Amino acid sequence: MTKNFIGLDTDKTAGLTEALNDLLANYQIFYMNVRGYHWNIKGDNFFELHVKFEELYTDLLLKIDEIAERVLTLGHTPAHAYSDYIQASAVPERKDVSNGKEAVGYIAESFATLIAKQRDLLSLAGEAEDEGTVALMSDYISQQEKTVWMYRSYLGQ
């Protein structure tokens, strides 16, 4: 077994890196969707949602950077081309969404996709004894579960 410079099995980190790059693609598409919601929102809840979407895309941008840096920490290269992101992402690209409830519904769906991918990564990272990725995914999941509850409550679900 070959270990990388932080003492993890290189074969296992290769699989982790693939999953992290997939997660990165989903975050990037979700981020751009939320930027679009922020820019294009109209209607009664404009002021509330405009601010909420800005908070969300700011947080997503931070997580995008953390995921890419985790890939680098594992000794690999983060994906960085939008053409790759669009091809890999399970979060669909959304265009011209200006209805608040529609945008919030898409946000809740996107978080469900991310949480599922992060749970898979949590398992892979545990098998690889990669505490750094375990901690990152665990933090994301616990934050996002509450966020999904709040967005779903807004929708009356």
Rank of each mutant, 00 (worst) to 15 (best):
K3T: 08
G7K: 04
A135F: 02
L155Q: 04
A88L: 09
L8H: 12
F111W: 03
S98L: 09
L61V: 00
G15C: 04
A108S: 14
K3A: 12
T77L: 10
T133K: 02
I141K: 05
G7W: 02
K52H: 15
D44W: 00
L24A: 09
V104C: 04
K52Q: 15
A125N: 11
A25W: 02
M137R: 02
G100P: 14
R119A: 12
N33Q: 13
L16S: 11
Q157Y: 08
V97Q: 10
E93D: 12
T58G: 15
A116F: 00
M32L: 09
A112P: 00
E131V: 09
Y31W: 03
A25Y: 03
E55Q: 14
K42C: 06
F5V: 01
S89T: 02
R94H: 12
G75Y: 04
D11Q: 11
S142D: 12
I41K: 06
K146L: 10
K42L: 09
G126Y: 00
E102V: 13
T10S: 14
R152S: 06
S138P: 00
Q143Y: 01
Q157M: 14
Q144I: 00
I86D: 08
A25M: 09
D22I: 05
A103E: 08
A88Q: 14
G156R: 01
E93T: 10
A88F: 03
N21W: 04
